[in-house]
Amino acid sequence: MKHTLAIRDLTLKHRQRTLVDRADLTLKAGEVHALVGASGSGKSLTCLGILDLLPPGVHSSGASLLLDGQRVEAASLRGREVALVLQNPRSAFNPVRSLRQHALETLQARSIQGAEAERLIHATLLEVGLFDGQRVLDSFAFQLSGGMLQRMMIALALLADSRFLLADEPTSDLDVVAQARFLDLLERLVAQRHLGVLLITHDMGVVARCADQVTVMAHGRIVEQADVHTLFHAPQSQEARTLLAAHHSLTMENCPA
C-alpha cells in the first residue's frame, strides 16, 4: 500500500438528493488515473470531495480517505501531500498578491525562506517551462495567460512537495498548442517526479494519450474501472461506449477515406 491515495465510499448529497453515490478511487504514485463521464456525471464533485472542498449546501457522509493505507483527514493533505489544479486557474490565485508572494507562502509552510527559497522557486519555474521567471513572479494572475497560470499551479504543487495532483479539466480552457504543452509537462513530471495524478476530463483523446487507469462515472456512480487499453478495446459500460463513439466520430477514426 505504499504511495497510494484512496477514497472509499464517497457519498455527496445536496439536501435529500444524492450527487455522488459510494465512489471508490485509488491513485498510485507514478500513474495517471483518468476520471471520465458526461457533463453532470459527478466527476468534479468527486475531485472536490476527496479534499473536502465542497460547494455550499453539499455535504459528504461516511467517506474514508487513506494515504498509504492509513486513514487521514483531508485538511492535513491539502496543499501538502495533495495539490489541486483547477479548470479556471485564475480563480485559484489571490488577485492582489503577486505570484512571487504565492510561491514564497507555499515554501514558508515547509520552513524554506530567504535565498534557498528564491533558488528553489526559479529552478521550479524552469522545470515547468516558465523561462521568464522574473517577469512571471512579479506579475499578478490577471496579467498572465491561462496556460501560464496552469503551469504556475503545477509549480506551486512541486514547491509544496506534493505527491499527488488532482487536475480538474485542466486543458479545457487552453488552445490546442497550450494543451499539448501542458500534457507534455504532466507526462514528464509523472515520470520524473513519480507524481500520482487524478485527471478529470471528458476528452478521450487526452485519456488515450496520458492515462494508465480509467474510471467512468454516470449519474453520480462509478460504472466501470479498467486500464486504458482494456477500456478502449473492450468497454463494458454504456457510458464508456458512448464516450468512445463520440471520440471516434470527432476524430474521424474508423471512417472510410
Rank of each mutant, 00 (worst) to 15 (best):
S145W: 04
L159D: 00
G205D: 06
R209F: 11
A123P: 00
G42Y: 03
L25N: 01
T242D: 09
T215F: 00
T201Y: 06
R90V: 10
L19I: 11
K2N: 09
G62R: 07
A178Q: 14
V228E: 02
F131M: 08
G196M: 04
R135N: 13
T26L: 14
D68P: 06
A141G: 08
R97Y: 08
L107I: 04
R22Q: 15
L25H: 04
F164A: 04
A226H: 03
R22E: 07
S64C: 10
L51Y: 01
G37H: 05
P256L: 09
F182D: 03
L25M: 12
E169N: 08
K43T: 02
E73I: 09
Q16C: 03
S76A: 15
L53H: 05
C255S: 10
I154R: 02
A155L: 11
V190T: 04
E73N: 14
D175I: 08
G114Q: 07
G69C: 11
I222T: 11
R17M: 10
D227P: 05
V82K: 00
R17K: 15
K28E: 14
A155G: 11
L231F: 02
A155W: 01
V72T: 12
T11H: 03
Q143S: 13
L166E: 02
A191K: 14
L189W: 02
R90E: 09
L67T: 04
T251R: 12
K28D: 07
L19G: 05
A218H: 14
E81S: 14
F232L: 09
I121Y: 09
H219E: 15
M217K: 06
L35Q: 07
L125F: 09
S76T: 15
R135M: 04
L195R: 01
A226D: 10
